[in-house]
Design a binder for these strands. Structure first.
Lengths: 234, 234
DNA sequence: GAAATAAATGTTAAATTGACATTTAATGCA
DNA sequence: TGCATTAAATGTCAATTTAACATTTATTTC
């Protein structure tokens, strides 16, 4: 940055969070019912202004904490939206972050206070401003990232079954996957630790629980990095 | 964005451009010699402040125009850097954009005026502030994007040879590729139009020139989108 | 002990990838 | 004229990966 002639005092900086959750076989989004004009009654992403003394990535963390009560949320910056006129309240540049949370770990009381609700990604209500575009780009980034990094586990409980994991991938990619091929591929990576326990809520037989093995993944990634080669998970 | 209680009047918004060029077999970066304190004498990315009345993506276009004289540059937003204290001149949030330009179409006079110089990506000088981190993330994004979208052509002249194209991929990925396998793969996509002309500056035999076939690519992408499937170019 | 249900498993053909060496076209110089 | 030089262009084969497909297994409940 060399040109110091144009301070931009009138631009305000905000963050908006695209909060993904997963349950059953559905990927969903946590939205806020907007209680004031303009666009009263529509739904919106949860957001807030960046504080003067706060690092950028802290800002969505604070916002998410206030909405869900959760710390330690997986967050990724997506895009800056800031065209003139995108927000009728003045020049607001908004940084979007997507968040992956384990559904049902969030604080229901806080959610109620914010008039927040989960919506299936396939059936979203009308959103204010350019929030729909924000969701679209976040989903695109989630899809691309999921393919090459094991971030999906942030949407699942620590222990999960292979059918659950497959459903998650299907929900993210928006298409059905062959179960035999999925298992073979995902297990061959060696980044899942099979447990003795079974989860029986979905079937009589029960499905074995697995846990993500971060150490194994780090080694795998290290190897790929050494050879300057792309790592594709599924 | 629902929380309206924290206006951020003291945050200034800037853009910094990571300008990639390619020639010979080298990927390089256009940098500016910093003529003033702090960090005088180091090199930096070309940047500037976002104007109050300018759409976000227009800002790097204006900056690039002033440096290179070029319009119609391929640009992609990369990341917002804005931690407190990253710029000693106050709270400055900087949006980074990477730019792909066809080297030697730029205006030499303007470059001289800005004390700008090309550096091989493998041999960069010391950069101010967090600009090295900016370069790193931009390069990462370039690599990922190159794999799935035909953006590399923006670094080449309209007509190019296969050896040139391969060199470009090698420079971006940072590893050697097998020429026979490269040709087979890239030609099988059907997105290159072979011309009658040959380019003879690099060899006695001469190499056939090709042109990127956008129509064919769009059809290919359309097909992939229909099936919700990933498209990998190379 | 029979029915029901989801989990788990295996095979094969087709396609893709990776590794590898020779021939071709043109130039310039002897 | 033809020989040396140089980078471009080409092909094969084995190994790996992928896609497509159906049956068996473990457990519960009636």
């Amino acid at each position: 940055m060399t040109d110091i002639s144009y301070p931009t005092k009138d631009i305000r900086l905000a963050v908006d969070c695209i909060i993904f959750g997963f349950s059953g076989s559905e990927l969903s989004l946590l939205l806020i019912h907007r209680g004031f004009e303009p666009e009263k009654g529509l739904w919106s992403l949860m957001g807030g202004f960046v504080k003067d003394d706060e690092h950028l990535d802290e800002s969505p963390r604070r916002v998410l904490k206030s909405l869900t009560g959760l710390d330690d949320i997986y967050l990724e910056q997506v895009h800056a939206f800031g065209d003139v006129g995108r927000d009728p309240g003045g020049r607001v540049v908004s940084l979007t972050y997507f968040a992956l949370i384990r559904k049902e770990t969030e604080d229901e009381v806080l959610l109620d206070e914010h008039d927040a609700r989960w919506f299936p990604i396939t059936d979203l209500p009308e959103l204010i401003f350019d929030h729909q575009e924000m969701v679209k780009s976040a989903l695109k980034q989630l899809i691309l990232k999921t393919r090459i990094q094991p971030i999906g586990f942030n949407l699942l409980p620590e222990k999960f079954t292979l059918p659950e994991l497959q459903s998650l991938y299907e929900a993210i990619y928006g298409r059905r996957l062959d179960d035999r091929n999925f298992r073979r591929r995902i297990l061959s990576l060696g980044i899942l630790e099979k447990l003795e326990e079974k989860e029986k809520s979905n079937s009589k037989k029960g499905a074995y629980l697995f846990r993500f093995d971060k150490t194994a993944y780090d080694a795998l990634r290290e190897d790929a990095a050494k050879m300057n080669v792309f790592l594709t998970l599924f």
